[in-house]
């Protein structure tokens, strides 16, 4: 079987999602029977060459990024938005809550003029995306599932139901029963409720379901006496740049 050439690229991100691939262990060996890595800054020094599949981590935050992602898109047959930053803008999207000039001054201070910046965008706000692997970081079993779909030429659908579904399958005690708020009820599943299985809350890193009942969720959170501003901040932590709507874009 001919191996598919795959290249990893990163934009504004922490590269933590790519690190998840480096951490795959034995599964990575199996995967390398199917794909040939031609570019992956985090694990290899070779670069360049042709690729069929581009795995893109990070959000688009500069004019240079826009030009670069367009070139990648031109070269790639398949483009995978990889991780929260690429799929929804991720935490970088919080920038969009502030004035762009203020943000630049805050970060680069007297050197602000040296740097270019644009409002944070998810990859599909600039170029067409074929597959989405949401999450901060990505959930490796889902990434493998997506790759298998790519290799078979099948579409992959990010689940459009709440994290609560998987969390209940796993019989975790509900965070709300412990008096802790959690974004599970409006966040897309597919991570097997990874965080709540380990005692953490859901931060909504996978983006919201396509049709969240935001008013109802606000009502639920209000019951816990949380100020409205905090609630909006909670929603915005991963979802400010955009709300992921992979399927509906077709």
């Amino acid at each position: 079987m001919k191996k598919v050439k795959v290249a990893f690229f990163d934009f504004a991100c922490c590269e933590g999602c790519q690190l998840q691939v480096a951490n795959m262990g034995d599964l990575l060996v199996d995967l390398l029977d199917r794909i040939e890595l031609v570019e992956f800054r985090e694990v290899m020094s070779e670069r360049g060459g042709d690729y069929e599949v581009a795995v893109v981590e990070g959000s688009i935050t500069t004019h240079h990024d826009i030009e670069r992602i367009k070139k990648i898109r031109e070269k790639a047959k398949i483009l995978i938005a990889y991780g929260a930053c690429a799929c929804t803008g991720g935490v970088n999207g919080m920038k969009n809550d502030f004035d762009l000039e203020d943000v630049k001054r805050y970060v680069y201070q007297d050197k602000a003029d040296w740097f270019d910046t644009v409002p944070t965008m998810a990859v599909d706000q600039v170029v067409k995306v074929d597959y989405y692997v949401p999450g901060c970081p990505v959930y490796i079993p889902e990434f493998v599932r997506v790759l298998k779909c790519v290799l078979q030429g099948l579409p992959y659908k990010v689940p459009d139901y709440a994290v609560c579904v998987e969390c209940k399958f796993n019989e975790n005690e509900c965070m709300y029963d412990k008096g802790i708020t959690c974004l599970g009820p409006i966040t897309r599943a597919g991570c097997n409720s990874w965080c709540t299985n380990n005692g953490n809350i859901c931060y909504g890193c996978r983006g919201m379901v396509s049709n969240p009942n935001k008013n109802a969720q606000m009502e639920v959170l209000k019951r816990y006496g949380i100020p409205l501003e905090w609630i909006i901040n909670k929603f915005n932590m991963y979802n400010r740049a955009k709300e992921i709507q992979p399927q509906e874009k077709e």
């Binding site: 199917r34 493998v144 298998k148 139901y161 599970g184």
Partner: peptide, 24 residues
């Protein structure tokens, strides 16, 4: 909220989906 909790925990809800998953 459509979180699905009511049906997941119901002792008489039995709807299921069927999915094929290929190996590597």
């Amino acid at each position: 909220l459509s979180c699905g909790n009511c049906t997941t925990v119901c002792p008489t809800c039995y709807c299921f989906d069927v999915i094929d998953e290929i190996n590597l």
